[in-house]
């Protein structure tokens, strides 16, 4: 039967374990078949796509792209790789949304924040102690490139306003609102419903403290316009923002971005 090994067609006897096929890749100890990790005892079936890698070995761009494609399935990955996503605000929400989208191989991320990393950010934002004082755009770009060196990043180190948002994020497929300030949240949501109607939009409101996980929801306001959060839990003295719950909201947002992209590509029903 025929299988694919590192994208090369190979004829093997049915029932051959992967460990035997892996003999051509000395030292390989990490086996991936059709995007899933398997043991060396796995017996590939006709048409399987197999990779025999070494744990800890550096990976090249085409290999990373191929692995993402295998793991996410080729059709889905093509949509993700073509996508342009704008992220407004790089705090607890934005830094986590960016990480999730970089890891899955989003084509281009447009990242905007005017601030620098300060010590009070580190309880929830994806920066490091040695990045205190750096611009958030640059610190996050460095971190994202360590997750996926091949993600295309556009950085805007400036304050966003209702006037400059449409210009700075022109060309984005989906815009993710990750502001702290409720006035900016409302202003950008108004834009999404008026001047930027063709763009997908995922905003957020209410994720401070340590309230119930399941009160964080994703609510549709238009076919491609959503707000994530519990709508109530504002950041205030006695109810601070904390990594766990902000992370729940951020990953609601990131998954909703993915769902909007896939729905627009006709790969997801019901949106």
């Amino acid at each position: 039967m025929r299988i694919m090994v590192h994208e090369q067609e190979r004829e093997v006897a049915a029932g051959t374990p992967l460990s035997e096929i892996a003999a051509s890749f000395p030292g390989s100890d990490l086996f991936i078949v059709n995007g899933c990790q398997v043991s060396g005892a796995y017996q590939p079936r006709e048409g399987d796509g197999c990779w025999c890698l070494r744990k800890g070995e550096m990976i090249q761009e085409h290999e990373l792209r191929r692995l993402l494609s295998l793991r996410h399935t080729p059709g889905v990955q093509e949509v993700i790789s073509r996508a342009v996503v704008g992220i407004m605000g790089l705090g607890g929400l934005g830094s986590a949304v960016a990480g999730a989208l970089a890891r899955i191989g989003t084509g281009r991320l447009i990242l905007a924040d005017y601030d620098i990393v300060d010590p009070t950010n580190l309880n929830r934002q994806h920066f490091f102690v040695d990045q205190i004082g750096m611009k958030k755009t640059e610190a996050l770009a460095a971190n994202l490139r360590r997750m996926n060196p091949y993600v295309d990043l556009t950085l805007h180190d400036c304050r966003l306003t209702a006037a400059n948002i449409p210009l700075l994020f022109a060309g984005a497929d989906v815009l993710v609102e990750c502001f702290d300030d409720p006035v900016l949240k409302a202003a950008s949501f108004r834009l999404a419903l008026t001047d930027m109607k063709t763009m997908g939009y995922v905003g957020a409101s209410g994720m401070a403290g340590f309230g119930d996980n399941n009160l964080i929801t994703t609510v549709a306001h238009r076919p491609s316009v959503f707000i994530v959060g519990d709508g109530e839990s504002e950041a205030k003295p006695g109810q601070g923002l904390m990594a766990p719950r902000v992370g729940i909201a951020a990953h609601h947002q990131a998954n909703q971005v993915l769902r909007i992209l896939l729905a627009r590509a006709g790969m997801l029903m019901g949106l």
């Binding site: 949240k185 409101s205 994720m207 707000i227 504002e234 902000v246």
Partner: peptide, 8 residues
């Protein structure tokens, strides 16, 4: 009315 609260 859609009301936004601070935090992000």
């Amino acid at each position: 009315l859609i009301r936004f609260v601070g935090g992000g």
